[in-house]
Write a protein that binds this DNA or RNA. Structure first.
Lengths: 359, 359
DNA sequence: ACCAAAAAGGAAAACGTTTTCCTATTTCTC
DNA sequence: GAGAAATAGGAAAACGTTTTCCTTTTTGGT
């Protein structure tokens, strides 16, 4: 057992209160005693027990981060951003995975609340509008309200609740721009859309963008050109194989994430479809793998690191306001800029220097 | 603020003790009161404050995992293994990154100790034998000793301390087998070794394996065939570019990790070196990227998920023993089996089905 | 029916802090 | 130099639990 404040007080010949005051830099302790106490602290290597302190002051300096899975590469940069910013502000970060289960997500929120985390960063899987989801959103809402408020902020997209902060990009616009790029720059006329599940908010937004781009460029929207997949590379791979079997024509593919795009790439390779000559491919997210595969993958760059850092920054900001006793600030949805990154899957021989590869 | 045990006791018309007994399933509470209390708990949504409980029973059910960086893909499967096993045993996991700084690592250990984590899983960067490292190892050692012991277990390789548990593979043997495979199966005669830093324990072991394989197959060990790199793809890329510039001959490359191997792959592509016809390449770790790049990368498969799960299992085991009041068990070094995975970078057209790709 | 033993359940101490409340001492002000 | 004001610093309450130590009630054996 490590040494307690009592022990330090005894050794320094002062009261517990004085030691506490020294630790916390409060007023009303003379230089003499201060030095004495500090010496004892140094030689005993004492460090205040944060459990006990947490109990007393109802603050744990812990932020919970709930994501779907660590293995989803999309999150790695986000996590780096979060943890760097957290560290700078004296917070520590607890990461948990939902594996896309909304039950798990609900459980985790409750769990972390019982653990007295100071705030929650959430990449939610809660979409749809059924009873369960509504109740869950209500619960989140309550956390966000006055009283001992635990602020929540969501990543990727604004959750379906008008009170919860979010940091995100404009997903509709990103999809729109990607497809427009394929049409205008690469001159595709027949573009497949490899989707994440439709019911998901992100899925819908990207679908809207895809559609709008076609319409504005006077291209027909063909339902059979849209394939609902499930995030994994294999689902993208299968989709292309199936379409090829049906001998359908296409000259461009827009994938909702890079992971599926990699599967698409593999399928094309096996089918001896030349990329980008026969078919141009756009991914989404610009995960590090995109620049590592061959041909390297054009994608929509999402500022993931910034997204994480910003989420944490906002949380700290809100926490400060709450701590100051004021009521929580109005909701904010922070919109970050995305950007199209051209690589070999849309432009021949467009090789980038490995030097700038962060991996 | 959520409802406290006192509130529950009041509402149920019983004492705090009784509520506590119900929560913890202790003896000596009549069915009647039990039901009453349970009802109140259900309707108030009460859940015991784990901070207070932690303070009382000196157990937080938290395990700290200290790794170098989340972005190092090697750890993702490990983390999955850890978190699954942790969850099954009622532990939650806190992840922190050292970014290869030993100071940071030391700080984190102290931090987590002050946070009263129940145990620590550590992918240490502490190697070498200077004063600082020795002091640090001493400190770890003390944690592991009797008293309120906090068990520590290291990943990847046994840390230089004879008392700390580890779960690892036989790194020397793995390197030996990889190089032997290049010599015997692929008939390479001139094998480069792209290394992680020599001073690192792992670097040394792999070097030994490389050397032994050459010797046992009567091939000369040429110092200029060994290049010390720094984990990143770019360092591997540069190494090959430089060697090519010097117009040196080689027909096989063994890389200490897949990340550098990917850089090597890129360099070869730019140099119009055909893989595997001109040069065969072996990576190490079998990170998911290995099966995603083209040509796909042969590698040494390290059972990462199992590694994480096993580390956690062992920790739980030790924790149980300690909790039972017995003195900590003898040190254990758990050795897992690695395996050579052949892909296109050593065998032409050796394509694997995407179906089994976990990504 | 009586007594011992077992079971039930409450009061209060303890965990390691922070902080309020108080008293004693020092420092000003005139 | 006297009184007020400011400063130092200790004792104790409080945070939300678990658990020990009791006292009271129930059970069971004869």
């Amino acid at each position: 057992m490590s040494v307690s404040i009592k022990e330090v007080a005894n050794r320094a010949g002062v009261s517990i209160s004085t030691v506490s005051r020294v630790i916390n830099g409060s007023k009303n302790v003379s230089p003499l005693l201060k030095v004495k106490v500090e010496r004892v602290i140094a030689e005993t290597n004492y460090s205040a027990n944060s459990i006990a302190r947490g109990l007393k002051i109802s603050k744990t300096n812990k932020i919970a981060v709930i994501i779907t899975a660590i293995s989803r590469t999309f999150f790695t940069d986000i996590l780096e951003g979060i943890s760097k910013e957290a560290e700078e502000n004296g917070y520590s970060v607890v990461i948990a995975e939902t594996h896309d289960s909304i039950e798990k997500e609900m459980y985790l929120v409750d769990y972390f609340v019982s653990q007295w985390v100071d705030g929650i960063i959430l990449a939610s899987s809660a979409y749809g509008n059924d009873m369960k989801v509504r109740r869950y959103l209500d619960r989140l809402d309550k956390l966000n309200k006055k009283g001992t408020r635990i602020p929540v902020i969501t990543l990727e997209y604004p959750i379906n609740n008008k009170n919860i902060d979010a940091v995100t990009i404009d997903n509709e616009k990103a999809a729109y721009e990607a497809v427009t790029y394929l049409i205008r720059q690469i001159h595709c006329r027949n573009i497949l859309h490899i989707c994440i599940p439709f019911e998901h908010y992100l899925g819908q937004k990207r679908m809207e963008g895809y559609r709008r781009a076609l319409e504005e460029n006077a291209l027909p929207f063909l339902p059979e050109n849209v394939v609902e997949c499930d995030y994994t590379s294999y689902s993208g791979y299968k989709a292309i194989k199936k379409i090829a079997e049906e001998r359908r024509d296409f000259d461009g593919i827009f994938c909702d994430n890079d992971q599926m795009a990699v599967g698409v790439l593999k399928a094309c390779e096996e089918l001896h479809i030349r990329i980008p000559e026969d078919v141009a491919i756009m991914g989404n997210d610009d995960v590090f793998v995109a620049s590592v595969v061959s041909p390297s993958l054009s994608s929509i760059h999402v500022p993931k690191y910034e997204m994480g850092a910003l989420a944490m920054k906002r949380l700290v900001e809100v926490l400060k306001i709450i701590e100051a006793g004021q009521k929580g600030p109005k909701r904010k949805v922070l919109l970050l800029e995305h950007e199209i990154v051209e690589r070999e899957s849309t432009v021949k021989n467009n090789r980038e220097s490995l030097q700038y590869l962060s991996w």
